[in-house]
Nucleic acid binder design. Structure first.
Lengths: 185, 185
DNA sequence: AGAGCATTGTACCGATAGGTACATTCAATA
DNA sequence: TATTGAATGTACCTATCGGTACAATGCTCT
């Protein structure tokens, strides 16, 4: 298993971090090279289409993580309430109490939105639909469940912006706590 | 009044639009020059410190607009409910139902946060404090008013992200409608 | 050992980045 | 009308941008 040469998958995590930290434009190949430990040769070997392909790979990886850790339990877990609490815990940890930016959100706000619109849209649609499914399993009216779900995802994004702006991780924590009580059966 | 030469203040609005659309890194001097109609000579004459000073000028202008149009009525208007509704109307129009990004929010999420942290923080603190004042004048408990206010500003930011991500202005509209009922006396 | 392909580092490309220098033009005042 | 300082356009600077070319290396399999 251990190889001296790099694997493409090893680059994904550092790539994600670099795009989160510097944005699409700000993440230069020099920064990317330093963060991944890969020279341009390797980078263009693994990602022939350059930065755009790197971001797409990162987005696919993010989707997979959310699918396994959050969407799937929300949709199929036997205890809806438990799945919702798990989602909130995972979200809190994933975004490091708001210190870590949501890459999808920042791409949506930036001028790169159109280039990745499908993945961006899918990320939020999946999240909202999965949470809605759990809320419906709690016995709620589907229309209310949809509205609650939309609102929860929206609050998480807003909380990231605000907690970063105020440099106050507690604000993110508070938002999660509030969701916990709003979404409890 | 009419001058053939440009005034610094004439550049602020196009500057704001260009930074909103392309972000701090993405807004090149070439784009800025085209958007403002000013050559590099004029730009560096008006803003000797370059892009950073341009953004600071835009942020100051944004602050002034919010102060006059939103914060001041919230703090000092004789009818708190009316001021809150005015805020929601102005916010809806200002962000063009979510089609227009919040520059402050996008700076907060980007890697430029530290450079403008004071203005970014002030923007949100002012908004939250002003809205809280109106809610207290409605007769609400100060602690609840603070929490409600924080939540409202957070929702607006989240709504911008989501409505852009989903390319759905109705989502922004829905968020505003919901705030209208949440914040009514 | 040696063939063959995946992987890598380096040198290089044209384009553009932000920023400076400066001579010129303009409009208001005296 | 002459002077002055604000305003402007152009040419230019170096650094870096994303991307390409390619020869050298590593690994795997026979």
């Amino acid at each position: 298993m251990a190889r001296l040469v790099a694997e493409r998958s090893d680059a994904i995590a550092p790539l994600a971090e670099v795009f989160r930290e510097y944005g699409y434009e700000g993440a230069s190949l020099a920064l990317i090279s330093k963060a991944t430990g890969l020279g341009k040769g390797s980078l263009y070997h693994f990602f022939p289409n350059g930065k755009e392909e790197m971001v797409q790979a990162v987005l696919a990886d993010i989707h997979q993580w959310f699918e396994n850790s959050i969407y799937s339990p929300l949709r199929d877990g036997d205890d809806a309430d438990e799945a919702i609490n798990l989602m909130l815990e995972e979200t809190l940890a994933y975004f490091k109490s708001g210190r870590r930016v949501c890459l999808v959100g920042s791409l949506a706000v930036g001028n790169t939105r159109d280039r990745f619109s499908e993945a961006i849209r899918g990320y939020f649609v999946n999240w909202i639909e999965a949470l809605k499914a759990a809320l419906v399993r709690q016995g709620r009216d589907p229309a209310l469940a949809h509205s609650l779900s939309e609102n929860a995802v929206l609050s998480i994004q807003g909380a990231i912006v605000l907690s970063r702006a105020m440099d106050d991780p507690n604000m993110f924590q508070r938002a999660i706590d509030q969701l916990r009580s709003n979404l409890a059966a």
